[in-house]
Design a protein around this nucleic acid. Structure first.
Lengths: 132, 132
DNA sequence: CGTGGCAACGATAATGATTGTCAAAAACGC
DNA sequence: GCGTTTTTGACAATCATTATCGTTGCCACG
């Protein structure tokens, strides 16, 4: 039990989940992803999918969204901090960056003496295709 | 059967929930509120608490927050649209208004052709008292 | 004041996503 | 290769929320 704590091992399952996320567009639930892996013939347990997704989320490699409705949705996103504009009807998602919002949030929090600030922001709407 | 569709009836339970929310500070889960009503001797079913809270939320009279962790939290808030700055440690909450954010969200959504726009924003941090 | 329709209530069961458990399997360092 | 340690994965447990459905109480009208 040295202090090396390498910890993260490279397993087939982890690669499979990561690879799948790399190909997917849009958000998908853990159970969705699990079903897709199964269809591909990958042998992965649901528990492992959840664990892997949590790990990736902690590492900042994927984004998590909690839409009203209960399921957590995961997506591989561009690296930096950003937010999402999601269509209520079809789920089409656009990544949006809002530096002004970031700084506003930090400023507001600082004014109230809050430290170690983070925030979540989701925008919902109906996309052009679904409006008609 | 006129077109009035009054619909909303004035019941003891609805008043109790609304009154309780009026006295409470901060956010509370549906189950919390239900337990409190029970302690007071009010005879209210858990189902009704959920229904009432949803109704109030739809009517815009209370705010709903979905913190990471699963429970929905409800709170009576000031009327207009606003957001919350929440302490991770003690839960202390500050209401913040950000007109700039609202217009930014609308603008971004409009740029992408999205209609009927809404958004959710929560800011998390550690409040001054908990920093020490 | 009495009555009937209809929405609200509420106990219980159902749902369904997520998390915990723990023995067995696989991966990494040597 | 070998041992150790992490990881896996099937299953059960948890737990908030939602659906169900017979009963109750509100409200309006006669």
């Amino acid at each position: 039990m040295s202090e090396s704590s390498a910890a993260v091992r490279n397993t087939r399952q982890r690669s499979a989940v990561s690879a799948l996320l790399g190909e997917m567009e849009g958000f998908h639930s853990a159970q969705d992803l699990h079903a897709m892996l199964r269809q591909r013939g990958e042998r992965v347990g649901l528990t492992t999918v959840y664990r892997t997704l949590q790990g990736l989320a902690d590492a900042g490699e994927i984004d998590v969204m909690r839409p009203p409705g209960g399921e957590h949705l995961y997506r591989r996103c561009s690296e930096g901090h950003h937010h999402h504009l999601v269509c209520r009807a079809c789920g089409r998602t656009v990544e949006v960056a809002g530096p002004a919002v970031e700084s506003w949030a930090d400023r507001v929090a600082a004014q109230h003496g809050y430290a170690d600030v983070s925030h979540t922001l989701e925008i919902f709407g109906t996309c052009p295709a679904c409006v008609r």
